[in-house]
């Protein structure tokens, strides 16, 4: 159980927002996410080889690493955020090689100490679940991904050991490019919600308030990443005000959706 258990209100969808750690003034951008109304923070761990990411987040990874970001810096960003925002859940998102260093248990302990509530490790599927057991042991939620290729036969394997929320990757592809058809999202969310009590958040390709509102009508959470990362890349030190205004527009749309309570 972590802060994530209270992050998804019953009467509306949560807004889940992603930025890459070490890209720009991350602390100020994180504060802007919260000020704009983000309910859950996903903080990307920069990696040299982000093979599931599209151009926007790839570029953010390179900017961050180019600026000299180390794992210790990312964890310091988390600790600083936790001190400023004691109640806003934060999830670390990234790839196995940096998130199991020096060992899975060692990284999990450091992440827990810094105040992370969950991890999304893109390239550790349920088949390699042994790698993530130390996170659970440290009270960190292990968030699983379901995708359009996750069929009914496979879904139980994905849900076994999942906690926090279920992240539905709405397109078979990389981050930030195409968007899924609303009908396919609705079908998938219905299917997933029939199989789990975890909140279901929908992401990949979500950019506009209109899209966010449509997804918020059916899902428990709306995940926005690349569009925010692009603002950070474009506006540099002036990014926080742009980020806050954009998040506010998404949040207003989500609140307007007023999810029907089942």
């Amino acid at each position: 159980m972590s802060r994530l258990s209270n992050a998804f209100p019953a009467d509306r969808a949560a807004l889940v927002t992603f930025i890459t750690a070490g890209d720009g003034d991350t602390a100020a951008n994180l504060d802007a996410l919260v000020a704009g109304g983000a309910d859950v923070i996903e903080l990307g761990m920069p990696f040299t080889d982000p093979m599931a990411d599209g151009p926007a987040i790839q570029a953010a990874n390179l900017r961050s690493l180019g600026a000299g970001t180390r794992t210790a810096d990312v964890l310091a960003i988390v600790a600083g955020f936790r001190a400023r925002h004691p109640n806003v859940p934060l999830v670390l998102m990234g790839y196995a090689n940096t998130m199991t260093r020096p060992t899975p248990a060692g990284f999990a302990a450091r992440a827990a100490e810094a105040g992370a509530d969950g991890v999304i490790i893109v390239d550790i599927p349920p088949e390699e679940a042994g790698e993530v057991a130390p996170f659970t042991a440290n009270g960190i939620d292990v968030i699983r991904l379901a995708t359009p290729t996750t069929d009914a036969a496979r879904l139980p394997a994905v849900l076994r050991g999942a906690s926090g929320f279920l992240y539905y990757v709405s397109v078979a592809g990389i981050t930030g490019l195409q968007q899924a058809a609303q009908a396919s999202i609705e079908d998938a969310v219905a299917r997933l919600k029939a199989a789990t009590d975890l909140p279901v958040a929908v992401g990949f390709g979500v950019r506009t308030p209109e899209q966010a509102e449509a997804i918020a009508r059916v899902a428990d959470g709306v995940v926005v990443g690349s569009a925010i990362v692009e603002l950070v890349g474009k506006h540099g030190k002036d990014a926080p005000e742009h980020v806050r205004a954009y998040i506010r527009s998404l949040k207003t749309a989500i609140e307007a959706a007023r999810k029907e309570v089942a």
Binding site: A96, D123, P125, A146, T147
Partner: peptide, 9 residues
């Protein structure tokens, strides 16, 4: 098998 869920099936 350290791949994204989309590729697992």
């Amino acid at each position: 098998r350290f791949v994204a869920e989309t590729l697992m099936p």
